[in-house]
Write a protein that binds this DNA or RNA. Structure first.
Lengths: 218, 218
DNA sequence: TGAATGCTAACTGTTGACAATTAACCGTGT
DNA sequence: ACACGGTTAATTGTCAACAGTTAGCATTCA
């Protein structure tokens, strides 16, 4: 059965990814191959491929002989993800400054405004999406495909983590100060590498502090 | 057939990875599922899983309906890998300084000496292995599993790239100056974050220059 | 002679079935 | 009442076969 022209398992993986990030499949949900096979009207083969892809993306965990479930990540996972993202994005802004075009900068400004508007309007999950789009733009501007792919993986994990954490301790329902994003954008626009790196570091320093603050009174 | 206790596809993936990095399977070699299945005495299922893993690691490319082959990466791929490694390792040294134990530092010194000895003795592929082990130690010291996994991927790709590039233009058969590694180790030992970051940056700046220099007269 | 077209072989994508293992449940004994 | 052993159900790992597609080759026509 051809759901599309792309690979069947790819279509299924996209659907599942969407369901996970939407919160439709909560963390810990078991992903039973046979069930998914009948749900999507295909055999278990493509399902296995899709689940393997999700596991590699960090959105699912695959215990041998015990099946795969939606990843249920904890505070230390979130800390790990943020640490890697900080390192990656500090490099990304450096590269972005060297390679950005005028169209890139315009797109960045658009996404910056969209992010601020989304945080102002709520609800949170939608704001996160805009937030990620802003972070993504300068990773794309870096002109490095591998870096962008890694960012996308980490961004997915971030959204999943935030969502599951939000349902457990509502104290994570905070909105970052709008300045941090604007500082990054300003520095990139000014081609000031040091300031851009500092802005990214400050962003993650703030996030880390906030995370440490909410993790304690759990 | 149980080759080991771990998953069958995992064993096969390890074997193939080894063969690729050893140069036993040169870049561009087609990895035909049926052939590998008969070679390893298993069915095509586990082979598919192993090949998917290699593709995910960047050691193979998988064109839909056209099969998978050993990745044949070019200079721009090497540049991409180095850019991401620089970003990752700049973060890694920062984290490593904050978390290193005495045993870690001793191990780092041991690997530093081993690397210098290996470059002094040649041959190159063996030296690369020692080189990677040195870079790996401070990524491990960073205490971030995700970062370490990403480094391992990039390190594999680096070795594959160097090896294939070496067979094509022998001008890549250069050995980095020993100081760059020692500068990194010294800065980490001194808990000097700025110096460590600068040392990593200098290392990759040198590599990049050397790469640009050899790529031109191709 | 050159290009286009139809055939053929090889390979992957997908499927359904079988084997192996895990986890849960029930019963028994102490 | 609790711990332990055996049995069963559920689920994954593996396999062999079928179907569909791609690439290469020969053939044909201009």
């Amino acid at each position: 059965m051809q759901l599309d022209h792309k690979q069947v398992w790819e279509t299924i993986a996209d659907r599942l990814r969407e369901d996970i990030l939407d919160g439709h499949l909560p963390a810990g949900t078991r992903l039973v191959e046979a069930d998914l096979a009948s749900r999507f009207g295909v055999s278990r083969g493509p399902i296995r491929d899709a689940l393997a892809d999700l596991s590699r993306s960090g959105l699912a965990v695959d215990l041998p002989r015990r099946g795969t479930s939606v990843a249920s990540l904890r505070e230390d996972d979130l800390a790990e993800v943020y640490e890697v993202r900080r390192a990656l994005e500090e490099g990304a802004v450096r590269m972005a400054i060297a390679r950005a075009t005028a169209e890139d900068l315009a797109e960045m400004d658009r996404l910056l405004n969209a992010t601020e508007a989304a945080y102002h309007a709520g609800p949170l999950p939608a704001a996160w999406e805009a937030d990620m789009a802003f972070h993504r733009i300068y990773c794309r501007m870096a002109g490095n495909g591998r870096l962008l792919a890694l960012f996308d993986n980490l961004a997915s994990q971030t959204v999943l983590l935030m969502r599951t954490a939000l349902t457990e301790h509502a104290s994570l329902a905070w909105t970052p100060p709008v300045e941090v994003h604007r500082h990054i954008a300003d520095a990139i626009r000014a081609c000031d590498v040091d300031a851009a790196v500092r802005a990214v570091a400050a962003h993650y320093q703030y996030t880390e502090d906030r995370l440490a603050g909410t993790a304690k009174p759990e």
